[in-house]
Design a binder for these strands. Structure first.
Length: 552
RNA sequence: GCGCCAGUAGCUCAGCUGGAUAGAGCAACGGACUUCUAAUCCGUAGGUCGCAGGUUCGAAUCCUGCCUGGCGUACCA
């Protein structure tokens, strides 16, 4: 907010200089206002003079001098201006400007930090999308949290968000699931039946078969069709998946079934349309999509010689449906193992006449679990994988959410079970939450000592003069911009880092300065700031789906 | 072989749309509870930003080549 105010002032000074003939308009929009890395370099810094010097072939320090003088005249906003290094102009903001943030934050409350940059654009976030073949794995967990956090951030920035889970209950995987269930069913009934080689070996299949026996006895013993087994398995597993998602605070607006694409004729339709446009041909008894027309190295099969479509075709048809449902922006969260499908789907979208630039794919890398410093081995097919449910049982929802959001999607994520389990000290989740609990404790204490609900007073606010206080105010001021960049870049980890920074500053401040003292005006001023901090921390935690405890 | 991602402190990772002296957490070491909650704080130590070139006023950041790890490269999803 304050940064953009300064940018506007700087732009005005630039225009003024153009009018006065000091420089040409060539550098318009090229200079920036940044936060310097080191203290003593001002609250903000601009490379204005360096950029202009490059274009105008003039001495950067001379230009810096000129612009500094112009800026210094804006006394309402700027306290002083310095020229440093090769020609950086460092700007020191009037302290009152920071302090006035406090009443604004308190007044806005839960709305502080939210914005309308999204312009109510309709955006679909597709995530999880795991087929109901087993409980959600750790990898799905990361995706679930990542997608949910992104959805929340987009909502906070004024997007009209729709959360969708896409699944398939028709393909080969589900058939194998049905066969696995039948095998367990027959084994439970004492039949000597060999388990399918590529079957799902998890314990949960046996439970499902047992439930089938309870409901229907041995009536399915001679049933050759796997459908009832598949349906039972699907029902149970989906229930399991939804309850896992629910306990993590994740709710979908819609579950989209791939089968409907067939039933509604969309699959045939897409093939016909691609064929009409010349992007489809037959070879070796299969149907091929001419992806080479879009710069790919080789064409891809979309219908196998068996007549069964490959995963690409429904994926393309599904994305076409997303476009037809009038979304302005499609965000797909996929595991990095799906990377191969992305170019194909985008080519399909383009071939069908839609704009692939409206699709943003967030690919996240894998998760490894470590315990006692050693990697925990996982494998989906075998029985020894760790499920999201087990993880939540062990460490709790907040740490699971926090840890999955802590890394950018591009990075592999190491989930340290020992660290996440720790109720104390080095666990970053509690570090942030404890900050909030502390603020609540101070406010409780203040109420007990007879302080009224903090009310901002300009005269008193001048007492907020400690460097730690100004630093906190400055950090609070960047909250809205942090949400915005975190949302638009689809990068929840930025919010996590922000919260850790804010909590850190708060803890330092707490240990160095006492809020409630005999100095009533000072106490009142500080309590206002504490209230504002509480708002920011709470909003930040809420936005990421983390709880904000009043006491710990 | 080709494509994508990663390589930054002992470990896990930020920073990467070029900016000034490269950061955090954990681990290590030394301190702070008669105090609004010590789930906290303060201090010390820790680095050839994978390697080599290039681009320019300026490179962890951009370009090229190479090395290492992960994922993909199906008529699996």
């Amino acid at each position: 907010m304050i940064r953009s105010q300064l940018k506007k002032v700087l732009d005005d000074c630039f225009d003024q200089g153009v009018t006065e003939g000091l420089w040409t308009g060539g550098a318009a929009g090229k200079f920036t206002v940044e936060l310097p890395k080191h203290e003593g370099q001002g609250d903000f810094s601009t490379n204005f003079a360096l950029v202009l010097a490059g274009i105008e072939k003039k001495n950067p320090r001379a230009i810096a001098q000129t612009i500094a003088e112009k800026l210094a005249m804006q006394t309402a906003l700027i306290a002083r201006v310095e020229i440093a290094g090769p020609g950086f102009v460092n700007v020191f903001i009037n302290h009152d400007v920071w302090r006035r943030l406090i009443p604004e934050i308190i007044a806005e409350g839960a709305a502080y930090g939210k914005s309308s940059v999204g312009g109510q654009r309709k955006v679909m976030v597709e995530f999880v999308s795991a087929n109901p073949t087993g409980p959600l794995s750790i990898g799905h967990g990361r995706q679930a949290i990542l997608g949910d956090a992104i959805a929340r951030l987009l909502e906070a920035t004024g997007h009209d968000v729709f959360r969708e889970y896409y699944y398939n209950d028709a393909g080969r995987q589900m058939r194998v699931l049905g066969e696995s269930t039948r095998a367990r069913y027959l084994q439970l009934l004492g039949e000597d039946f060999t388990f399918p080689e590529d079957g799902y070996q998890g314990e949960y299949i046996i439970d499902i078969s047992r439930s089938l026996i309870e409901e229907r006895g041995d009536s399915l013993k001679d049933h050759q069709d796997v459908t009832p087994f598949k349906e039972q398995a699907e029902k149970h597993i989906f229930k399991d998946i939804s309850s896992t998602l629910e306990r993590m605070g994740i709710v979908f607006d819609n579950y989209y079934n791939e089968r409907s694409l067939y039933e509604n004729g969309h699959i045939d339709d897409v093939v016909a349309e691609l064929r009409a446009k010349g992007y489809v041909y037959e070879k070796d008894n299969a149907v091929w999509f001419r992806t080479t027309a879009f710069g790919h190295e080789q064409d891809r099969v979309i219908i196998k010689s068996s007549g069964e479509p490959t995963y690409r075709l429904p994926d393309i048809a599904y994305h076409r449906e997303k476009f037809r449902r009038n979304f302005d922006w499609l965000v797909d969260i996929f595991g990095s193992d799906h990377i191969a499908t992305v170019p194909d789907v985008l080519a399909g979208v383009k071939a069908l006449g839609y704009d692939p630039d409206k699709v943003t794919v967030v690919l996240h890398q894998f998760v490894t679990l470590t315990r006692d410093g050693k990697q925990v081995k996982m494998s989906t097919r075998k029985a020894n994988f760790v499920t999201v449910d087990e993880l939540v049982d062990e460490v709790g929802v907040d740490p699971v959410r926090f840890f999955f959001m802590m890394r950018k999607a591009d990075s592999q994520l190491e989930f340290d079970l020992d660290l996440a389990t720790k109720q104390s000290q080095e666990n970053p989740v509690y570090y942030v939450q404890y900050g909030h609990a502390r603020l609540c404790a101070i406010l409780r204490q203040a109420a007990e000592k007879g302080f009224a609900e903090p009310e901002f007073d300009v005269a008193e606010s001048v007492l907020l003069n400690e460097p730690e206080e100004l630093k906190l105010l400055k950090t609070m001021s960047t909250f809205p911009a942090t949400i915005e960049s975190s949302a638009l870049e689809l990068a929840p980890h930025k919010m996590i880092f922000y919260l850790m920074e804010l909590a850190g500053q708060l803890h330092s401040y707490y240990n160095k300065h006492k809020v409630i003292t005999d100095d009533i005006p000072l106490s009142r001023a500080r309590l206002c700031m504490i209230r504002a901090l509480q708002v920011v921390l709470k909003n930040g935690l809420d936005m990421l789906g983390l709880s904000a405890p009043d006491r710990m």
